[in-house]
Amino acid sequence: MCNGTCTSDTDNIYQPHLARIVRRLPQIKDHRLFQLRLEDSEIRQNFSYRPGQFVELSIIGTGEAPISISSSPTRSGVIELCVRRIGRMTEALFRLPLNSLVGVRGPYGNGFPLEQMRGNNLLIVAGGLGMAPLRSLLWYALDNRSLFKEVILMFGAKVAEEMLFKYELLTLLDRTDMRCLLTVDKDEEGTWPAQVGVVTKLFDLFEVDPKITYAAVCGPPIMYKFVSKKLLEKKFSKDRILMSLERKMKCGVGKCGHCMIGYKYTCIDGPIFTYWDAINLPEMI
């Protein structure tokens, strides 16, 4: 896969391209959506990716971290990264003023197997920050609506204040060409306009034919267990359950060893794994 960043004999695969922070959109507490624009026009035009891939984001003088891409490749020009302020690198990123330059290299990882998924129903199951990579797939599917049969989004957050992309997703409630199921664990004020309860409860609200459906799952570790159990009950075969699983992806190119699980590197063999892969790799879920 050459994405305009593929290497020639003399290229340094670790050297980032400069990108400018053109917008910083506050999300929930400690989460922001950063819009980045690659400085070099040729690199910018050639930068293509698939939902589920990630980039290595560098802050000059601080370091580098893997961040999944939240924007859809159908909307070119900027790359959107949804970041939680959680470590040294992201702390530095949140302090950077608008228009600052950062470094980007990638995209890396396998991304979702779109060629296989086409023509099927798409069931997106997200929990918490798991919406960050799945948002790319969601908009890819909605922008290429004819590529998929039914599109269903199931997304759960603890409370409404912690739902990522809340306002954007609430607008999907009115769409007739998809089902948008947004749930919060608790709604003490009784103002949440959609479902209440854990994300697995949403499975009772619809029927899909598991033979022509791909489920794409991303969320906190505990969620994989419950969601995969539900999907198996619904007779999904294990290779139709796709999970975005991440580890410490430091180099992004399968060299530094940190994201190794069993005999797979999450950075090049993943981060999208089938449930079958996941249960056959030690330590995976």
Partner: peptide, 12 residues
């Protein structure tokens, strides 16, 4: 791996 500076960005 490479050098960096606030002005020039990343360089070999």
């Amino acid at each position: 791996m490479f050098r960096f500076s606030a002005e020039a960005g990343y360089e070999e």
